[in-house]
Design a protein around this nucleic acid. Sequence first.
DNA 1: GCAATCTTGGAATGGTTGTTCCAAGATTGC
DNA 2: GCAATCTTGGAACAACCATTCCAAGATTGC
Lengths: 201, 201
Amino acid sequence: MPDVKHFDPDAVLDQVVRLFWRRGAASTGIAEVVAETGISRSSLYATFGGKRDLYLAALRGYVERHSRPVFDRLAADERGLPAIAGFFGGLIAARCTGEHARWGCMVSNAHASLDGAEDDDVKQVLDAHHDGLCTAMRAALRAAGRRGQLRPGLALEGAAQTLALLAYGVNLRSRAGASPAALTAAVEAALASLTPDEENR
Amino acid sequence: MPDVKHFDPDAVLDQVVRLFWRRGAASTGIAEVVAETGISRSSLYATFGGKRDLYLAALRGYVERHSRPVFDRLAADERGLPAIAGFFGGLIAARCTGEHARWGCMVSNAHASLDGAEDDDVKQVLDAHHDGLCTAMRAALRAAGRRGQLRPGLALEGAAQTLALLAYGVNLRSRAGASPAALTAAVEAALASLTPDEENR
DNA sequence: GCAATCTTGGAATGGTTGTTCCAAGATTGC
DNA sequence: GCAATCTTGGAACAACCATTCCAAGATTGC
């Protein structure tokens, strides 16, 4: 008997993600969300709750739709270092060109926007994201190890953490306009230092 | 003949830095600044101009008082890798403990809060900061090279960029509550991969 | 001590914020 | 087609935003 929604919540959330991703949560008003999505305030609040809930849903949607697929692909890639190089290559391309150029990564941005307050739900998403990235990186490094691409004695867990933090650095600097060349140089140096000495002579 | 200021602008700017550093610019109101500093709105506007000018002054003050001294010390340190290890050790300590624990780095935070708009002045500060960090890192790496601490064939410029981006990663993750141990593991792995193979067997 | 000149406190402003509310509209099962 | 039930548009709201303004106060050179 009831009426049904006159819009697609998933599509709307996608637009909200793009808005919060680009502009940040604090400096994006509900009015902008309404203008961008075309749906009314009532529908927004009825579907997603208040602004905090909306942001949280958008952040989770971002991880689910943008981060997770990339992490999964990296973790499943058996090529070793080329897989990691491919990950960073795609990252730099996505951060510097195309539709989302200079937007950075919504999760990285969220780190800086964390209110000292009880942002526990947001923090949980951030930690889960970081864990997913580290895990994928670890898997790719293990594959590299199996193929003999890594220098002897390399601390696999530590290297995974290094590369994960490096990705955050790329995300951050890309937002300020860092050149793809500079970012690529940093990544290539990091990857080169994982290989045995012989390959760099 | 004129009257003179009834407060110390430098001390006030320090308080403003701490406020924007911790809470971010977008979510900090002028009212909070007035409450924190104790000076009145009139004095604030007369001394620093509007909010954008105030934030810019605070950002520049942060770089001048917090980043620059650390960069200079790193650049002048002739010990090589131990100097870099010391830099990161101090960074992790400052980010995870003490007065500014979990505040991250104001410049790193600024990256994420960049409005797509004409934030050209802010971007300039960010670029200068990044340049200072890379330059200091390069100098320290050169010292390491002179002392034979680096693996053969290492791309010095690339390694400097890698370490700089790594620092941004540390800043970001520390704000979300990353453990000093995890951050240290990432840094140590990065530094270890700069040395010749022999030292890790 | 005087007058000139800047600073200061605090009220006032107009705009924007997130959120709520309700009448009007749309869609359902029967 | 009917009523029940949800959704929708848009007005209304109080709180807060950055900024301005002015009378009152403080400090200076003389």
